[in-house]
Design a protein around this nucleic acid. Structure first.
Lengths: 253, 253
DNA sequence: ACAAAAGTGTTGGAGGTACACCCATGT
DNA sequence: ACATGGGTGTACCTCCAACACTTTTGT
């Protein structure tokens, strides 16, 4: 079915919830080093409805663009990053999503993504604007009022993230190429909001074959230097939906 | 964004994968009673593309209709039933979904549903038409070639169903109001494709509080009459997405 | 009495949590 | 040497699979 010009129709948009992990107080490097916490970028709306309020990055689906490509494009536009993990979250389409008087009804297909905050254009801490004054990062514990039903969407994305960290292998997506087990554990702790036993965490990860030792170690520590690990590409991180046909190159089990 | 008449656009459709459980050979009542198996209704396409092939029931999203309502409507249109369970599956939107030459690109938001086969208009067994000659039920083990990417979609829906039966409480959706634990176990066995220990199954279900005894028993058996159970509405069956705010009327434990 | 399925008891193994303990390095 | 986090060993506990066993009905 094709929609007619000027008559009300159904607009199809793609939005993305982008998560990164940041230290809670980047402005005080010598601070007591509290746990890192989850942050996400929002964009300020520059036209009605909800003009001036913060919303998830996104936009109309382009005619020649896959859904996932659309999500990746808006992600790059807002963060100048490529996602380390990207998955469809849900399609939102209830009739009451747009305020009365809107021309078109909007159906939003929402993705969620994980990016490495270290690579991120170093946005200043709380709610301060990046070079693009209409993009800002917020802690998920301290979000402003969001446009549309985007607060519900963020809540659901958080729920999915916390669930998936427990039974999948996506935590490394917050980190760089190599990392220590302590760093990986801190990611889990920050996402789950509780501390984990280092000993048991190590065994879980090792028995899951999710990571492989690189042979290298961190240098410059004032204590026993930890081993560096790399993500094991032979195991697929998680079910990414019906697509993504489970990459399994031959690997020793 | 509104699409212009006659120019190519993006069409938004809603389809539904409908599962029911049926005995494998309903035509032979005295047969060795093999395990019941999963069946689903398909509709024959009456226009190009894929004219004459079988496809999932569905259609364009109506302007004034919620996504879930659209899924329920096509479900009722093909099976004359109300779903016992209905959940969004995934949004499919790759560029190659429609054959070349199609006017519009189609994005399909797909739901999956469970219905009680006993109530179903008693369709004759394998691939024989129902009153509506363009609807037929097929065993998931013996599906015809499907239009579009519907084979991938069905495969993914099956995967979700099998997963969710294990960690959720949706199996009762295949049954009537009351049922015995043996019946519920047969549902699990049929979906998972393996037999389960009756003793352990009983304990699992009882400890989960998913069902409550009605106090009644089955009569007319030639052996010890089993108790009848009813589904416990105080526990929510599963996460149905960001909506469905977890109904939890006051309940013990 | 017997068959058949309902329902109960008991055991052993797998996996997860808690926590004591040793190891390696810079200061 | 000692402080610090890396890394190992081990006991316990809980949950789950297997399977022997008892109970209750109709014939």
């Amino acid at each position: 079915m094709t929609l007619h010009d000027d008559s009300p129709g159904i607009a199809l948009a793609v939005s993305t919830v982008i998560f990164a992990l940041r230290p809670d107080r980047p402005e005080v490097p010598s601070a007591p080093a509290s746990l890192p916490s989850l942050w996400l970028p929002l964009v300020r709306r520059i036209r009605p409805p909800y003009e001036g309020q913060w919303a998830l990055p996104g936009g109309p689906l382009q005619l020649d663009e896959d859904l996932e490509a659309s999500a990746a494009r808006t992600l790059a536009a807002t963060t100048a990053l490529a996602p380390n993990y990207l998955e469809q979250l849900y399609a939102f389409g209830t009739l009451d999503r747009s305020p009365d008087g809107a021309k078109d009804r909007v159906v939003s297909i929402v993705y969620w993504a994980l990016v490495n905050a270290d690579q991120a254009s170093q946005a200043t801490p709380a709610s301060v604007e990046t070079p693009d004054a209409n993009v800002a990062w917020f802690s998920v514990d301290d979000l402003p009022d969001l446009a549309f039903d985007h607060d519900v969407i963020v809540e659901y994305a958080l729920w999915r993230l916390r669930n998936k960290v427990e039974y999948s292998r996506i935590a490394h997506a917050f980190l760089g190429d190599t990392f220590t087990l302590a760093e990986l554990r801190e990611v889990h702790e920050a996402v789950l909001g509780r501390s984990l036993d280092p000993a048991n965490f190590r065994r879980q990860i090792e028995s899951s074959n999710a990571v492989v030792p690189t042979g290298k170690r961190v240098t410059g520590t004032s204590y026993r230097p930890p081993k560096l690990y790399r993500y094991n590409n032979a195991v697929d991180p998680a079910d990414r939906g019906p697509l993504a046909p489970a990459v399994r190159p031959a690997s020793a089990s």
